[in-house]
Design a protein around this nucleic acid. Sequence first.
DNA 1: CTTGTGCGTCTCTTAAGGGAACTTACGACG
DNA 2: CGTCGTAAGTTCCCTTAAGAGACGCACAAG
Lengths: 153, 153
Amino acid sequence: MQRTRFGDMACSIARTLDVIGEPWSPLILRNVMVGIGRFDHLQQSLGISRKVLTERLRWLVDNDVLERRQYSERPPRYEYALTVKGTELCDLLMVMVRWGDRWTAGEAGPPVLYRHHACGEIGHVELHCSVCDRPMDVTGIDILPGPGAAITT
Amino acid sequence: MQRTRFGDMACSIARTLDVIGEPWSPLILRNVMVGIGRFDHLQQSLGISRKVLTERLRWLVDNDVLERRQYSERPPRYEYALTVKGTELCDLLMVMVRWGDRWTAGEAGPPVLYRHHACGEIGHVELHCSVCDRPMDVTGIDILPGPGAAITT
DNA sequence: CTTGTGCGTCTCTTAAGGGAACTTACGACG
DNA sequence: CGTCGTAAGTTCCCTTAAGAGACGCACAAG
């Protein structure tokens, strides 16, 4: 079967998928983000098998997205926390939340809300341009080849 | 094997993953986004197996992310294009690109660049608050339960 | 009437996931 | 002292589905 590895493609999307593209990984990240960082809690809250959880956690730690730290010496106990690299991945999660809220909303409405410290209001994320700060989406850009080219027909 | 379905979880991330969480789906979307919309072109440019490509395309069409449209009557020829729902998924891709550029950049630098029509400059996406328009990330928000609750310890 | 192209389906192998039992290391309890 | 409980995995087996690559089919052109 030999699943194709995305890690060495000349594409940032593929390389990002290589890190968190496996099933469960984004959900693990979500839980760590909200403070569920211990093995058993993750396993129970997700309903994931312990085997897969072990694999995913190891991969995420090896890829510097999570760090495993000991919070008790005796008995030895560990928990997982976001690194800086992992924290920035949360941007991705927030955009997923936004899309999921808009397009897969059940009758019940969004399961979580964000209160923005800067303004104190309940808001959601929007994409803006890093240069001019105005909204930016795929219909308002040209896609140009960069230094490390990609995408062939 | 019985892979756990994410579609009916009370979590927008899980539901989003249910739509585009399978391996290859985001890359298919990326290619359709840049204008590669025909079966063979997708297959060749991705190196994906034809079977998997068929499955993914059907899933994405069924989920209203792509539409399959006939561009030739005889012989019957089809291409795939983004729906509105799919176009909004591109936000997700752009955020993935941003993270991949920052954290998995090879020596070569980013494979693609975005020129923002509104300002004419090369920029990248940033997350801003929909209410106050200022930058917003996971460290600057409180996460509150919404109408459709989620995440248990 | 054979070749080429576009778009898929079919078959076969392999590995990934679920689930449960086992392990280690400790603290507490009676 | 024996054993119960808990945290954090590890190891095993078994099923199933996912993936690669071959094959099929419709049509057009030469």
